[in-house]
């Protein structure tokens, strides 16, 4: 299970991803610079957080035109697993690999804190190692994390159970209080229709190393590894693909 982690100018969570995936979870990790035209041998792609191109114009708007992005698109279209975290989520939306957009937090403030997330769909390639409706604690750090899309898209996401993570309070009814940025339906993370591309604002890679006190995020990457192993065993059907 090899992860490719892409570095854009302004990415600042790429090293965290390398540490979490490599040193902590023990997976081989490839570093791919945005100017490269090939991903190389890998089983999954990570688009990390940060401020690619200084967030100029719109967060993720310029990164979507980087030389590596056509490769990421091809990889995703071939069914490969792609995860975009924070700025990575913004880039995937800008690139059209995920629906909707991420706009300025309703509070107009950059929010950096831990949030509780409910795993709304534990039958995806990114969440199979969580329990259904499990509540996990993961940090966020973003100024543009308010997820918006038109009514039809939101209805579709809900109907197809493609809202994978939702901001939550300790109790199920606490959702509005747990919403840190004004996202529609308190959406924190979604997958594409095929189930192989995930975007989320919270940072699972920051809660993998027991040294930082929590390991709630590790199961995202373990789920991806399990999905890839499953794909290798049975090809097709892909058991974890929704």
């Amino acid at each position: 299970m090899t992860f490719a982690v892409i570095t854009f100018p302004g990415s600042n969570c790429d090293r965290d991803c390398h540490h979490a995936l490599g040193a902590v979870l023990g997976y081989p990790v490839r570093a791919v610079f945005h100017k490269e035209h090939a991903l190389g041998a890998c089983d999954a792609v990570v688009i990390p957080g940060g401020f690619s191109y200084g967030d100029y114009l719109r967060a993720g708007a310029l990164a979507k035109l980087s030389p590596i992005m056509p490769e990421v698109r091809r990889f995703a279209e071939a069914g490969g697993l792609v995860i975009g975290i924070c700025n990575g989520f913004q880039i995937l939306c800008e690139a059209g690999l995920l629906p909707g957009a991420l706009i300025r937090n309703r509070s107009l403030r950059f929010v950096s804190r831990e949030v509780m997330l409910r795993v709304e769909n534990a039958h995806t390639a990114f969440t199979s190692q969580y329990e259904p409706a499990q509540v996990i604690t993961v940090p966020i750090a973003h100024g543009e994390g308010c997820y918006v899309a038109d009514d039809r898209t939101i209805e579709e996401l809900e109907a197809e159970e493609r809202v994978v993570f939702r901001y939550a309070g300790p109790r199920r009814e606490d959702v509005p209080d747990g919403n840190p940025n004004g996202s529609r339906h308190a959406i924190a993370g979604i997958i594409n229709a095929r189930g192989n591309v995930l975007g989320l604002m919270p940072h699972p890679e920051r809660v993998c190393d027991p040294l930082v006190g929590r390991t709630d995020g590790a199961s995202v990457f373990r789920s991806m590894a399990a999905a890839v192993a499953g794909l290798r065993r049975a090809d097709p059907p892909a058991v974890f693909v929704v």
């Binding site: 114009l57 708007a61 939306c93 800008e94 629906p99 957009a101 918006v148 899309a149």
Partner: peptide, 8 residues
């Protein structure tokens, strides 16, 4: 293609 995001 770039300056405006047609979604929003």
């Amino acid at each position: 293609s770039l300056l405006a995001n047609p979604v929003i």
